[in-house]
């Protein structure tokens, strides 16, 4: 094997194809069924695994988004959601003279408890994925090589450009550029930093294109992949479970909409 990858935990050992199936199963189950209990279970398991995988530093940014969204959605929908009948609906509580209704919270929960479990679980799945393995998986799935390259290369270029930007910001600060102070001063600092970032990248494009061409990027031969992705027993088991969940979810939704089965996964409140 030519490559080495970090595979200390169970999650890191799973193949990208397995994680893609799990992602699909979660997306279908959470979005189509919209059951609060299921959402909380997914949130709980995801957060536990985030701590286990030691991804808490990255997750902090997601938490900030979740908190802002919570206060926005419940704070606004709780009081003025479209499904509220102010004349008849029960008021749960009042803050600063603003009444909050149960129906408003239900409306907010319908969306919030769909977005948050997916944020937690998909963040975990994708940050534990090896990008080169993902690229190999996508090629094996039959996706065109150039498309896969473009997708995977984006992650790489983002990281590199981020480092360049820090260097460039230091270089401009060393020539007297102020990056602190009032809004106008900070806004003025944007162009002297962004222009060298963009320009130094575009300067390299022609050379990169020639380099890629000389390495056979445009060759019409089928590309081979040097990464060996051998599914373990756990990969196969999780894949089967995920497929069953996908099929089960679709069947439940279709059959309950047709009235053939009762929608037993509806929320109690």
């Amino acid at each position: 094997m030519l490559q080495t990858r970090k595979q200390d935990t169970i999650l890191q050992k799973l193949l990208p194809s397995t994680k893609l199936w799990v992602a699909l199963a979660l997306i279908l189950a959470v979005m189509l069924i919209r059951n609060y209990a299921l959402s909380f279970i997914v949130i709980g398991i995801s957060i536990a695994l985030i701590f286990y995988e030691k991804k808490t530093d990255l997750f902090k940014l997601i938490v900030v988004t979740m908190v802002v969204m919570f206060f926005s959605m419940y704070g606004i929908h709780g009081a003025i959601a479209p499904n509220i009948d102010k004349a008849n609906d029960p008021v749960l509580f009042s803050i600063f003279g603003i009444d909050y209704y149960l129906n408003g919270f239900k409306y907010a929960s319908h969306y919030y408890l769909c977005v948050i479990p997916l944020m937690c679980s998909l963040f975990l799945l994708f940050t534990s994925m090896d990008m080169a393995d993902l690229g190999a998986t996508m090629c094996q799935m039959g996706l065109p090589y150039k498309g896969v390259f473009t997708f995977i290369d984006s992650f790489q270029v983002m990281k590199l450009l981020g480092k360049e930007m820090n260097q460039i910001r230091d270089a401009q600060r060393a020539r007297g550029l102020e990056t602190e102070g009032n809004l106008l001063a900070r806004f003025k600092a944007f162009i002297p930093i962004m222009v060298p970032v963009v320009a130094s990248s575009i300067v390299k494009v022609q050379d990169q294109a020639i380099a890629m061409d000389t390495k056979g990027f445009n060759s019409l031969n089928k590309k081979t992949i040097y990464r060996e992705l051998i599914p373990s027993a756990l990969d196969k088991l999780i894949k089967v479970i995920s497929i069953l969940v996908c099929v089960g979810t679709l069947a439940y939704v279709i059959l309950s909409k047709m009235g053939i089965i009762s929608p037993f996964m509806t929320n109690i409140i």
């Binding site: 450009l161 806004f187 494009v205 990169q208 890629m212």
Partner: peptide
């Protein structure tokens, strides 16, 4: 097509960096 394969990720990265820089300069 080679140029496209280089420029699309570059556009993605510039979008990302623009957002990061705006955030680090505390722009609204």
């Amino acid at each position: 097509s080679t140029y496209i394969a280089i420029m699309i990720p570059l556009g993605v990265a510039i979008n990302y960096i623009g957002g990061q820089l705006a955030s680090s300069l505390s722009l609204p």
